[in-house]
Amino acid sequence: MKYTEEHEWLREEDGVIVVGITEHASEQLGDVVFVELPEVGAEVTKDDEICVIESVKAASDILAPLDGEIVEVNEAIVEDPGKVNEDPLGDAWFFKIKPSDLSPMDDYMDEAAYKDFIG
């Protein structure tokens, strides 16, 4: 598992990257009440704002961690945004992206580095 400074987790599954938000991020956000996901098939560029996540407190964006194509999105968290607080590392993944180039994955933090990052 890799982590971004935007508090996303990235897990590689057969050349596709599954993306979600970390437990730390879900705690900081508070109760999530709204999620907007990208369209399946969308070609995205690293750092594009591709998801919106709103909690009882505020709205924030999720950035594309890599260049690539969105191959699947998790409609279950659109139907029930509370899942993001219940199981951010499991059931409440956001989208799957097929990267055009996997090598930027090496630049992201591993778990130890992320733990240091959030202090």
């Binding site: 508070g30 109760d31 009440v33 009882v56 407190k57 509370g82 607080n85």
Partner: peptide, 10 residues
């Protein structure tokens, strides 16, 4: 206090 451990929703 903006919220306690219970959270805003609960």
């Amino acid at each position: 206090p903006v919220q306690y451990p219970l959270g805003v929703m609960k």
